[in-house]
Simulated scan of single mutants.
Amino acid sequence: MKIPIAIGAALATAMIIAAPARAHEAHGSRGYSAGEPGDPKQPSRTIEVLLSEMEFTPARIEVKRGEQIRFVLRNTGKEDHEFLLATKAENLKHAAVMKKHPHMEHDEPNGTRLAPNKTAELLWRFTKPGTFEYSCLIPDHREFGMTGHVTVK
């Protein structure tokens, strides 16, 4: 009888510990709003995006529907910054979660967190038309203007 109680306690503890990780929305079968992860075997256009204190350079990007972009992300700032590609509504929702869990790290094909002087790459195919947002969702960074937009035509 003591073994099931111990197992139950261990499972409950594991669920509590895992809660912040689950707070990061999983995309799973519903996919991504801005398209899909790219295919490294297919051609792509490279766009360098600089992340610095409260801005992205460039802040506006235009792509064609179906185009694959290799984003080279460089944190030229003095703080950690993020690049998360989604809709504005999704980024606002995720920003609220980030306020509760400010050290959450992203391990998604549409986003990454970078320490100062670090570089990362994201490969993305834009399959849906519209305007999408890339934001830094570290608390207060988005509010101070750290957003950019991709228009897919």
Rank of each mutant, 00 (worst) to 15 (best):
M1C: 06
I3P: 00
P4T: 07
P4S: 10
I5L: 12
A6L: 12
A9S: 12
A10Q: 07
L11C: 15
L11Q: 08
A12F: 09
T13A: 15
T13K: 07
T13V: 14
T13F: 15
A18W: 13
A18F: 13
A19L: 11
A21D: 12
A21V: 06
A21N: 12
R22S: 13
A23L: 09
H24S: 12
A26L: 09
S29D: 14
R30T: 11
R30N: 14
R30E: 15
G31K: 08
G31F: 11
Y32W: 15
S33C: 08
A34C: 08
G35N: 07
G38C: 00
K41T: 15
P43F: 10
S44R: 01
R45T: 03
R45H: 11
R45L: 04
R45G: 02
T46S: 13
L50F: 05
L50D: 14
L50R: 12
L51W: 07
E53D: 11
M54Q: 11
M54N: 15
E55L: 10
E55A: 09
E55R: 08
E55T: 07
F56T: 03
F56I: 04
A59F: 02
A59L: 01
A59R: 10
A59V: 03
A59W: 03
R60C: 00
I61G: 02
E62H: 10
V63S: 03
R65M: 13
R65T: 13
Q68K: 01
I69K: 00
R70Q: 08
F71W: 12
F71S: 01
V72Q: 06
V72S: 05
L73R: 02
R74K: 12
N75A: 08
T76K: 14
H81T: 03
F83W: 09
L84S: 10
A86C: 03
A86H: 12
K88I: 04
E90Y: 04
N91W: 07
N91G: 01
L92D: 15
L92N: 13
K93I: 02
A95Y: 13
M98T: 06
K99I: 04
K99L: 08
K100G: 15
H101T: 13
P102Y: 11
M104A: 15
E108M: 07
N110P: 00
N110K: 07
G111E: 05
G111Q: 04
A115Y: 09
A115K: 12
P116V: 00
P116G: 02
N117T: 08
K118P: 14
A120Y: 06
A120C: 06
A120E: 15
A120T: 05
E121I: 03
L122N: 02
W124E: 01
R125C: 04
F126Y: 03
P129S: 02
P129Y: 02
G130A: 06
G130W: 01
G130V: 02
F132D: 01
E133W: 00
E133K: 00
Y134T: 00
S135R: 07
P139V: 05
P139L: 02
D140E: 14
H141W: 11
R142H: 13
R142I: 01
R142G: 14
E143T: 06
F144M: 14
G145M: 05
T147M: 10
H149Q: 14
V150T: 00
K153H: 15
K153A: 09
